[in-house]
Design a protein around this nucleic acid. Structure first.
Length: 218
DNA sequence: ATCCCGAGGG
DNA sequence: CCCTCTGGAT
């Protein structure tokens, strides 16, 4: 058993080293408004941020606001986002989501978790991204595929359920760290602590990492 | 648990 | 070929 205080101490060490390694980590998705971040985050499901940015470059010019997305022709929207994968689901979700925004939120993105999660295609992860990064409201900790993987490897959680991982992380991190912690963990997961063959020899966290579930190098 | 689904890396 | 990429709905 690891005591709670030890969990917090371990987390503080991780935060300190992440800050040193990624001093100005920020959201890798390109956006200029809460709505754009919401759409980009829906598109980011099982897709690289680079690919999302390629698609949104033209998409946001073609659909400037929620009303435009709500009125989109499904076939055209699908074609515009096709390369991000899951394009039928994503197109339907974006259209219906923006219809909800127009009909129930004055065309704006709501700033609370309950309203966001009720939107079609918006789960807890997407809601936390929008609240934290677009509005600066640390409501929870973003748990995506990177943060889930790194949190387990680093011994910050033993769970695989994102909700349980989020609860563990929230208990170890001060609220003011939640948003940047997410950005830095994702940056670290993309560059060093990658899924397949993590580059432990280049990792600034190596000396404090239990490497849980990481295969031994021979 | 399963489905949606294209693109890139190894 | 296989695995992974800032998931969510059923």
């Amino acid at each position: 058993m690891v005591a709670i205080a030890d969990g917090k101490r371990h987390a503080a060490q991780i935060v300190k080293r992440l800050k040193a390694a990624y001093p100005d980590a920020r959201c890798a998705l390109d956006f200029q408004s809460p709505l754009q971040l919401l759409v980009a985050t829906i598109l980011s499901a099982q897709c690289t941020d680079t690919r999302v940015n390629i698609v949104t470059k033209d998409l946001f010019g073609k659909y400037p606001d929620a009303k435009a997305f709500a009125a989109a022709r499904p076939s055209e929207l699908e074609r515009a986002i096709q390369s991000t994968g899951f394009f039928r689901n994503k197109a339907k979700n974006i259209k219906n989501c923006c219809r909800e925004l127009v009909e129930h939120h004055g065309g704006e993105v709501p700033q609370d978790l309950d309203s966001l999660v009720k939107l079609p295609g918006v789960g807890r992860k997407t809601a936390n991204v929008v609240l934290g990064t677009a509005f600066g409201i640390p409501t929870g900790v973003v748990v995506d595929t990177h943060i889930a993987r790194l949190s387990r490897r680093l011994g910050m959680t033993r769970h695989s359920d994102p909700v349980k991982i989020e609860r563990d992380l929230m208990g170890q991190l001060p609220k003011r760290e939640w948003i940047d912690f997410g950005h830095r963990m994702i940056a670290h997961g993309r560059r060093i602590c990658v899924a397949r063959k993590p580059k432990c020899d280049q990792c600034p966290l190596d000396s404090i990492c239990p490497r849980i579930g990481v295969a031994d190098r021979s």
